[in-house]
Design a protein around this nucleic acid. Sequence first.
DNA 1: TTTATCATGTAAGTCGTTACATGATTGA
DNA 2: TCAATCATGTAACGACTTACATGATAAA
Lengths: 191, 191
Amino acid sequence: MSLSYALLGLLRGSPINGYAIKALFDEAINFVWQAELSQIYRELESLEKKGLLCSTIEPQRDRPSKRLYQVTEAGRLAFEKWATTIPDSFATPKRDEFSLRIFFGSGTDKELMKEEFRRYIEHMRGLRKGAEKYTNLAERFPGDQVMARADQICREDPYCDFIRRRAVLVSEAQILWAEECLAKLEAGPGS
Amino acid sequence: MSLSYALLGLLRGSPINGYAIKALFDEAINFVWQAELSQIYRELESLEKKGLLCSTIEPQRDRPSKRLYQVTEAGRLAFEKWATTIPDSFATPKRDEFSLRIFFGSGTDKELMKEEFRRYIEHMRGLRKGAEKYTNLAERFPGDQVMARADQICREDPYCDFIRRRAVLVSEAQILWAEECLAKLEAGPGS
DNA sequence: TTTATCATGTAAGTCGTTACATGATTGA
DNA sequence: TCAATCATGTAACGACTTACATGATAAA
């Protein structure tokens, strides 16, 4: 599973706690990975048991204590191995509810399907907009060192920009596709 | 979960057995849904227990017996309800190992990353090629009525074509993106 | 004779979501 | 006072994968 590598990769830098990782996933790298807090905590615990991470409790004055994680040497090695081994297959599991709904569209009222495409286009425009600009983590989390650092890394790292650019291009392709479908449905008989 | 609706949708037509459904997923609608045989069998069983499907055993002379499934009236209603209710969100779970590998690319040797992009482009070209033509199920499964019928439906159904077209456009966008990334890596310092 | 295809299933384990529990502080 | 944010976790369930078991026929 790749969540473990996402965590090992993120924890190579300064120590982070589970809650902040969730914020990073949601705010900064939402084109890359997604996970629920409960899953993150469980995975961090599991990685620590395996000796790939270690944690320390950091008490805070005005906030609850944090459990800060860092990679161990073994964790760093495991990540390195994963990062330098090109996978045999690039296939991603194909399980997309929207595709399925469209696939079975011919049994559904055409006006309803048109509305579904319109809503999909709105959704995709939102995604594109979100990907077009850098997520300004430093602004959103003022005074947070971890976020400031993540922000800076993303701004300087060409690979981080690749991922952002991909989100833009792919969502644009899907917008064009959906608009094309809508036009065909409107041009077709009985509309 | 949507696998159940994929099954209910497929089984609205002529009765099909689990093994044939797997073939349909793999050959015809691989842009739409994916599932392992073991999961299909379990899900079919579960849907029958819920009264949404019913099955009959069909003995064959030269082959093992088949368990043929069909939707019940309750199953048809459940499918209708799903198909005619536009979901609140179009978000798909974002969990793509390739994105993650690129995101962490700056720590990896540049030549290795270039090779990874090249392999990715090859993979995407294969996907595009597969999507450009109709999957000729009738040719691949000569004499198979279920496949012949699925083939014909796909050929006549505009929604089926939408899905195919989407796969073409999205894989094209990803090819362009990856080529753009490669060019940037090659133009950058130290290449 | 061995491999491939057809055919159905079970069992174990991993991965992921949803719901629940707890409790502190801050701001409206 | 009430909601929001910060913070960590547990428990139950649901979804998916991998491995295993079985056995027939057809083709190489």
